[in-house]
Design a protein around this nucleic acid. Structure first.
Lengths: 248, 248
DNA sequence: CCTTATATTGAACGCCGTGTAGTAATTTAA
DNA sequence: TTAAATTACTACACGGCGTTCAATATAAGG
């Protein structure tokens, strides 16, 4: 019970209660979907009144925004670590690792996926900036790293019918690309977004229940698709892809 | 005002009111998203009481299910007609037509897309069968037709690392494939689902606002991705792909 | 005409997010 | 230490939601 942090005891209690609110909200979400994130239910669960929550979050949407930032950040972090567990020498395997990590996270936290990539909650409007936006940018830069590593082999395989400019993209993302990968053309950024979409599509269909009724082993279909993606970048899947496929 | 149909005048009134409820629901949805589909709001708009709607739909979820069926069916029909407006002789262009029609529909009816492919409404659970399921199957068979037409050139480009059986897929879809395309292997069905996912991914990201902040011309990115898809099936985009790209 | 089925109303219940006034506790300043 | 200000919280109210139910009006069929 000895206080070690300089800040007030009050501030520590506040931080603790804030964390409990978020944790309770995530529990409710895991149990009943993003719609179950109700201030009254959270307060009830915590033995508080609904109004008390307003001392911590000005509105329910503020809480949801915070949760999106947390969940999204955790998802991206897990994808990053999965990717970095594979050697730089095998860019194809690194892409596979990222893709499988993202799908694995989505299957383990389907409600989190809905929260981040769907309509989180009735009437919610995502803010222009914040932790969620940062996590999204971090996801894109993570993918950009992968695409940049593949670019030497992928460039020749791209159709050159359409040209892009750096100004076609988000300034922050474009600046990051130019700074970290000098010589990389803006077309690589377009390819990054396409890769993102390709990784996202099957997972979104699966999480929202459109795939499970049609295919008994969505994991195999997804793996096939990702192998085709890696091949389309002129890379081999490498030896790192020898993992399970029938798992759920 | 002369009755021509044998059914009761009452039955006709019922049908008419049912249609008005659905139309009002779609208006509300277009204005405020799927969450705006509220029985009380519909009734208010129609000068009724909320309870009266229960004579037509046993529950709000029943209404939503009906709407999903209608909207999904309309979307698939528009994709089919766009596809069939292109000659059989150019399978690649037919695929492009389908993809662009689906994306166009999604951009014109973003709330409809959310209704069909997202969480339509708090706590909604999609039924196992019904018009929505039929529309989904129709979408898949429509895509299967496209993939089957591409199979002669696409087969050789597929990785043969993974084999599928017909029993890996929905029985109805598998039966349709075997009946309509004798000689087509089950791997083509897996490819169909992968194509579906690839067409869906970027659109889903765009509709839910993840792409607009990052790329100023999502249409160009999507078109690139679809051209790559067509090429990956061993097809050329053909002459039919010469349409606008900067449009919104 | 009379009985039966159906459409509709109005009120109620229990959820929800949100605001407000008042109260108790803690922090800060004097 | 005491007084003032900030903060956390409760209790209550408002309007909206889906849903149920008893009562009532209307049309259908015999």
């Amino acid at each position: 019970m000895s206080e070690q942090q300089p800040p007030n005891r009050r501030a520590r209690l506040r931080e603790q209660t804030t964390a409990e609110i978020k944790a309770t909200a995530l529990e409710l979400m895991a149990a009943g979907g993003p719609d179950a994130i109700a201030l009254r239910a959270i307060a009830r669960e915590m033995g508080m009144t609904a109004g008390a929550v307003y001392s911590y979050f000005a509105t329910r949407d503020d809480l949801v925004t915070t949760l999106i930032g947390d969940v999204y950040t955790a998802a991206v972090a897990s994808a990053e670590s999965a990717r970095d567990a594979v050697s730089d020498a095998d860019p194809g395997a690194r892409i596979m690792a990222w893709a499988l990590a993202m799908r694995g996270w989505a299957l383990e936290n389907p409600e989190g996926f809905r929260l981040v990539y769907g309509d989180p909650v009735p009437g919610y409007q995502a803010p222009e900036e914040g932790a969620g936006k940062e996590a999204e940018l971090r996801a894109c830069t993570g993918l950009l790293d992968l695409v940049a590593a593949a670019w030497p082999t992928a460039a020749a395989l791209q159709s050159d019918s359409r040209r892009y400019e750096w100004t076609d993209f988000d300034p922050v993302l474009a600046a990051h690309a130019q700074a970290d990968f000098p010589g990389l053309p803006p077309e690589a950024l377009a390819l990054t977004l396409r890769v993102w979409g390709r990784m996202h599509g099957l997972v979104a269909l699966e999480i929202y229940g459109h795939l499970r009724a049609l295919a008994h082993d969505p994991a195999a279909v997804y793996r096939d698709e990702m192998e085709d993606l890696v091949a389309s970048l002129g890379l081999g899947a490498g030896a790192g892809a020898e993992t399970e496929t029938e798992t759920e």
